[in-house]
């Protein structure tokens, strides 16, 4: 396969954040698409007005952060209905959520909390993903989490868990390369092996972001704060991922210490340039 036979790839996108609402209303950012966090656009008023304009200008993806697909108590029907209402209203190009839980005992913890990877949790997540897809009447992508702990009983490796989830529910995978790297460092695992273990036909989107490097008792711990540029090691994973998943569009996320919009646009352009170089090398190697 050569680059010329592929569909023209969608240029990299950026996450839409409230800090940039004024800037995106003033002029259309020069990116391929934008992604919103569903939970920030469920009301009315100014946020919805901004979203409506962005949706007129660019392809939009809806990324849920609060459905708690890993929750053993199942989905919150009222919240599911609100997310479904947003999806129906803006008809996004993609819908995604996380391999994580955030609700227990009806309490929302505002964090993407880790799951033990067992047959039991696979059943729970698959049931919740199927319910979500049935409600939306469309396929969703499920994102790999960044984690800071592992459970002592968690026999299924995370990429195998995601692959089984995709197979069982028909969902796709949103592969976050920064999350792979963060978790790999935090647990001493192989990030490259992770990318290679993900089924190529399941990946529908790639995420990139920066992380914070912390040290605890002489041990390096990476905190997934989305507060800086993408680091070199994550760019290398991205190059590997675009060769393996050439049709998946890339998104830049930035959530803390948010810089001016121009900086994010520049980061998205950098992703496009790196993607093109990675594919050239791929074609050269194949020729």
């Amino acid at each position: 396969m050569t680059a010329s036979l592929r569909e023209p790839p969608l240029a990299a996108g950026i996450g839409l954040r409230a800090a940039h609402h004024g800037a995106v209303m003033a002029s259309r950012p020069s990116v391929g698409w934008m992604e919103i966090h569903a939970e920030n656009y469920l009301g009315g008023g100014a946020p919805r007005r901004v979203l409506a304009q962005v949706r007129r200008d660019l392809p939009v993806s809806v990324h849920g952060v609060g459905l708690s697909l890993g929750g053993a108590e199942g989905l919150d029907q009222a919240h599911l209905d609100r997310v479904a209402g947003l999806v129906a209203a803006i008809e996004p190009m993609l819908v995604s959520e996380h391999l994580a839980w955030s609700v227990a005992g009806g309490v929302y913890h505002n964090d993407l909390l880790p799951l033990p990877y067992t047959e039991e949790s696979l059943g729970v997540v698959a049931g919740n993903v199927s319910r979500l897809q049935d409600r939306l009447r469309r396929r969703v992508l499920i994102e790999n989490p960044s984690t800071y702990l592992r459970f002592d009983h968690s026999p299924i490796p995370e990429p195998a868990f995601l692959a089984a989830l995709a197979q069982r529910t028909g969902c796709g995978i949103l592969l976050d390369l920064n999350n792979i790297y963060v978790s790999a460092v935090n647990h001493g695992l192989d990030a490259v092996g992770y990318v290679d273990a993900i089924p190529a036909d399941a990946v529908g989107e790639l995420h990139l972001a920066g992380h914070h490097v912390a040290h605890e008792d002489g041990v390096t711990i990476l905190i997934d704060d989305h507060g800086s540029s993408v680091c070199d090691a994550v760019w290398e994973l991205h190059a590997r991922a675009v060769r393996r998943f050439p049709d998946a569009p890339t998104l830049i996320e930035w959530d803390t210490a948010i810089p001016p919009l121009d900086r994010l646009v520049a980061e998205a352009k950098a992703a496009d340039a790196r993607r093109a170089r990675a594919l050239e090398h791929d074609d050269a190697a194949a020729a």
Partner: peptide
């Protein structure tokens, strides 16, 4: 009691989530 003790103690790893919340 259910968290893997791996370079850091489970309590230290749980604390990262607690701080985030």
């Amino acid at each position: 009691g259910r968290v893997l003790h791996d370079r850091l103690a489970p309590a230290q790893r749980i604390q990262i989530y607690r701080n985030h919340v």
